[in-house]
């Protein structure tokens, strides 16, 4: 007769890895819908390309490692990484650029480090940084939001699909007529060009807090993220930490000199701040694991985002901030390890 072997923990959590990943994907749906509404179907194509190449690369690596591809594909983490990568890309991105990032994310950032649970770096951000460095021109092709009073050329769904496949615009359009600076780019170049923050905010592309369109997508990302928190998929420490780390220096600088610094609201609703706080930094594998550690990790990311936006060469710094803090996670975990019951406060070492 066979007995079921019982080992601790006896009370199993209701969340499995695939269930967590599924909830993350569901939480991203409103934001993707808003992205399609404001910037066209491009993100959908990017998601399809990223998912195909992430899943394909993961299956090949698993085979090369002598393990069943289904084992890794079933947990859905590759799909989440693919969707986050697609979210980081401009809606007009040729497929080979997305594919490069996806393959790098899976093969180098994830599986060369040992696969899910072992990867030191957030795969989506590692893949994004690689294509940001390798294809700088393609990564600058952001389009203007579709708003009635903004007079920019827009590609329809079919033209966008053709661009994704071939990297060519319709003959009547040029890169200058379809692409526009992102709000962070506008702010950065404007401030460097001696404009005041208020003058930059008066541009037609700017909305109440961040850029028009962008801030709405931010709202939907926040809704999805708060939903994840309520369902206890993510905990509040990292998002709050990122908020503190970014907003405290932003507020201080804004109060000192409002003319040459963007407002805290602008920082919160621009670029990938909210996506980072709720979806990227909260990656359970590459983030810190203790409660204090998570706060430190989040605050560090926020501070780095502010520093890169304010002093760096790039307009946004989320990917670099996350990767840098990923490197510090082992250190953070070591110094914030909660004491083991009955052993007193233990010295690290």
């Amino acid at each position: 007769m066979k007995f079921e072997r019982r080992e601790a923990p006896y009370i199993r959590p209701a969340n499995s890895v695939s269930l967590v990943m599924l909830q993350v994907l569901v939480a991203l749906v409103p934001a993707v819908a808003a992205h399609v509404w404001f910037f066209g179907a491009g993100i959908l194509y990017n998601i399809v390309v990223a998912v195909i190449f992430c899943a394909g690369a993961e299956a090949l690596v698993m085979r090369a490692r002598g393990r069943a591809p289904a084992e890794a594909l079933a947990d859905g983490s590759a799909i989440v990484a693919a969707v986050l990568l697609a979210f980081a890309l401009p809606s007009l991105t040729p497929w080979w650029v997305t594919a490069t990032g996806a393959v790098f994310a899976m093969v180098v950032a994830k599986h060369l480090y040992g696969g899910l649970g072992y990867n030191l770096f957030n795969p989506a951000m590692a893949g994004y940084v690689v294509i940001l460095i390798a294809f700088p021109a393609d990564m600058a092709l952001w389009v203007a939001p579709r708003m009635g009073d903004l007079d920019y050329q827009h590609l329809n769904a079919l033209q966008t699909l053709w661009f994704t496949l071939s990297g060519e615009l319709p003959s009547a359009m040029s890169f200058d007529t379809v692409s526009r600076a992102t709000p962070l780019d506008l702010m950065k170049t404007g401030l460097a060009g001696m404009q005041t923050a208020a003058e930059i905010r008066a541009e037609p592309l700017m909305g109440d807090f961040g850029g028009r369109g962008w801030e709405w997508i931010g709202n939907f990302i926040a809704i999805g993220g708060i939903g994840l928190m309520l369902r206890k998929v993510i905990r509040w420490h990292i998002p709050v930490g990122v908020g503190i780390g970014l907003l405290v220096p932003a507020t201080i600088m804004y109060m000192i000199d409002a003319g040459s610094h963007a407002s805290p609201g602008f920082h919160l609703f621009s670029g990938a701040t909210l996506l980072c706080a709720f979806f990227i930094a909260t990656d359970p594998v590459s983030a810190a694991t203790s409660t204090t550690g998570r706060l430190i990790y989040g605050i560090g990311i926020g501070l780095l985002i502010y520093a890169i936006r304010r002093f760096g060469a790039y307009a946004d710094g989320v990917a670099f901030a996350v990767l840098t803090m990923n490197m510090l996670v082992p250190l953070i975990d070591r110094y914030t390890r909660p004491p083991i019951v009955g052993h007193g406060p233990e010295q690290p070492g």
């Binding site: 490069t100 180098v108 690689v130 460095i133 390798a134 294809f135 700088p136």
Partner: peptide
């Protein structure tokens, strides 16, 4: 070509 290969990270990889 793939620019990354020529940059310092490419050397490490």
């Amino acid at each position: 070509g793939f620019l990354l290969a020529l940059l310092p990270p490419g050397a490490f990889f």
